[in-house]
Amino acid sequence: MNKYKTYLKYFIYSAIFVYVIIISYRSARPRYKPEHYTDIFKDFSWLNDWPKWLDFPLMQPINSGFDWLISKYGLFFDGINNFLLGIYTSMRNSIVDLPWPLVIAMVITITYFASGKKIQTTVLVAFCTFFLGFLSPRYWDKCIMTTCIVVIGMLLCIIIGIPVGIAMARNKKVRNALLPVLDLMQTIPSFCYLIPGILLFGLGAVPAIIAIFVYAVPPLIRLTDLGIRLVDKEVIEASEAFGASKKQTLWGVQIPLALPNIMQGINQCTMMSLAMVVIASMIGTRGIGDEVLLGLQQLNVGMATEAGIAIVLLAIIFDRITQSYGEKLQERTQPKKKINF
């Protein structure tokens, strides 16, 4: 019985393959094809170089599909665009309007409490923040723009990534379906989804946020999934044995114990977002990435280096804050061994 099933599967796959080849032949331009298809079996010269008729037509349907998508669901994408743009603009404007010492003070406060009142981390982050403007005064506002984009992209990742990761950990089918998608998201070159981003959302901050999402969400999903699956089986068993429902086990045991891993995922997510936001400057996203692009265009080594340092500083700020928050959580969930005697 099982053997027939496998044979049937092979048969279906080969049928699809043959069908695809026929399609490619039929859709090829007449001048690329031999006069009659029987010529293929008489004249074997096409075996030397890849024949032009053996060309799977993917570009055309994708383009027309995209056109259809924009004409039909344009309003939907406009809605997303306006929503994200609205959040971005209001967030950017409110921070840009603040006096810069106040912004630094805010960063210091956030770091101080997020790191569990670690002085060292706070001082480091404060200096990094100060140096952003100190490097070049025009960097200050650009860094704020970049930060806003990264933060919104990250929030999007967290809102969507963590539930998806949890679903993956709990259901094998979901995991099998999503793993190839995640692989695709991670391997496909970023420019390939920047272009449709521009088509759907226009130039500016929103396609950058979408690109950040595509680029940065896979590690968060993977680490959430891993974190939840790594929770000790006996602990889960204990929870079940005392009559905890699935929901109680998830919120009371699995998520708290997976938090260090999830925080690591968020940290990775931030770093990747920052990398993406620089690439996104090539599609007209304003931010510190422009400066790198400008330096590249003018072959101005100094300018590119200066901007590069600013990005590194920004990365350090993000990394320290998320990392130390993660450590704080870890300490709470897995306290260090103390000697009692």
Partner: peptide, 30 residues
């Protein structure tokens, strides 16, 4: 499971993120 039986595990199966008190009260919590 809540009302008929309880279980003790070989490697204890305690919740590392809960205090002793919270661990002991877990069955009542659920």
């Amino acid at each position: 499971r809540r009302h008929k039986m309880s279980m003790v595990f070989q490697r204890f199966g305690l919740f590392p993120h809960k205090t002793v008190m919270e661990n002991v009260g877990y069955g009542l919590e659920v």
